[in-house]
């Protein structure tokens, strides 16, 4: 049984003027435990709506979202679903609840009524996992954006989730901060946590096992990075190819030949070397 299952999910909301907007139309897919999936699409494609459907923040207008056998419509399971599927949001400044970092990370488990001994252990493990142990007793206000997001991830980890959803968690960070967060996401995935990364950065999407592309609320592509970047649809969806893919394309126009679609710099360098020596 897949860990996450979306069956014909549609979602509509009303604007301030009472107009109904369909943010998602008939979206179906499933995700297995341990996968690293990127959900990509331009602004307004429905990707953030989808993220909020995954942990029951929104309930579908039609269709079902099932997390580990629990339907998000079932209000009695909302709590379990949120514990299983943690979410890291976009703005690093909006996610802190305490001034001292360890208090912030402890906030979730404290609310769960986790005994003190275990809570200390959880906070410890969570801060280790994101590389913020040495900041434990410091104030959150002096941190960089990337560090704040790492603390937010630690807060989610302390709940011991099986799934983490990154809802454009890197989009407000500088390149160093982005790299820090993607690095943490990859490490958590290697430990078996399912990662869903909502992004419009194709360099980040290229790190996933699988990319799902949304356009105007519909799922238009679903495949490995290679498959997705080879599709002419990508640019029609308002997405840019990763720089390495773009460069390979420019070189192809200048007489170079590559095997399949190039998705990262190493592959590109390898390809150029093989036909230049």
């Amino acid at each position: 049984m897949p860990q996450i299952e979306l069956i014909n999910v549609s979602y509509s909301y009303r604007t301030g003027e009472g107009q109904s907007v369909r943010a998602l139309r008939n979206v179906s897919f499933s995700v297995e435990k341990g996968e690293f999936v990127a959900l990509a699409g331009m602004n307004g494609s429905g990707k953030s709506t989808l993220a909020k459907l995954l942990n029951g923040l929104f309930v579908p207008s039609a269709g079902d979202v099932v997390i580990d056998g629990m339907n998000t419509r079932d209000e009695e399971r909302t709590f379990d679903i949120r514990r299983k599927a943690g979410m890291v949001f976009q703005n690093p400044d909006n996610q802190m609840v305490a001034t001292i970092i360890e208090d912030d990370v402890a906030f979730g488990p404290e609310n769960l009524g986790v005994p003190r001994e275990e809570m200390i252990e959880r906070v410890d493990r969570a801060l280790d996992a994101v590389g913020m142990q040495e900041y434990r007793t410091r104030s959150a206000s002096k941190l960089s954006g990337g560090q704040k997001q790492r603390v937010a991830i630690a807060g989610v980890l302390a709940m011991e989730p099986e799934i983490i959803i990154f809802d454009e968690s890197t989009s407000m960070l500088d390149p160093e901060g982005r790299a820090e967060i993607m690095d943490v996401a990859k490490k958590l995935n290697e430990k078996g946590i399912t990662v869903i990364a909502i992004t419009h950065n194709m360099d980040e999407a290229a790190m996933a096992d699988r990319i799902i592309v949304l356009r105007k609320g519909r799922k238009v592509l679903d495949g490995t990075p290679k498959e997705v970047f080879a599709s002419p649809e990508v640019e029609a969806c308002g997405l840019a190819l990763p720089p390495a893919t773009e460069l390979a394309r420019m070189l192809s126009e200048r007489g170079f030949r590559f095997d399949g679609t190039v998705t990262d710099e190493e592959e590109l360098v390898e390809g150029i070397c093989s036909q230049s020596n």
Partner: peptide
């Protein structure tokens, strides 16, 4: 990227 692609093409 254009400068890089051009330089590589010239080399080739």
């Amino acid at each position: 990227p254009v400068a890089l692609a051009d330089a590589l093409a010239e080399l080739k």
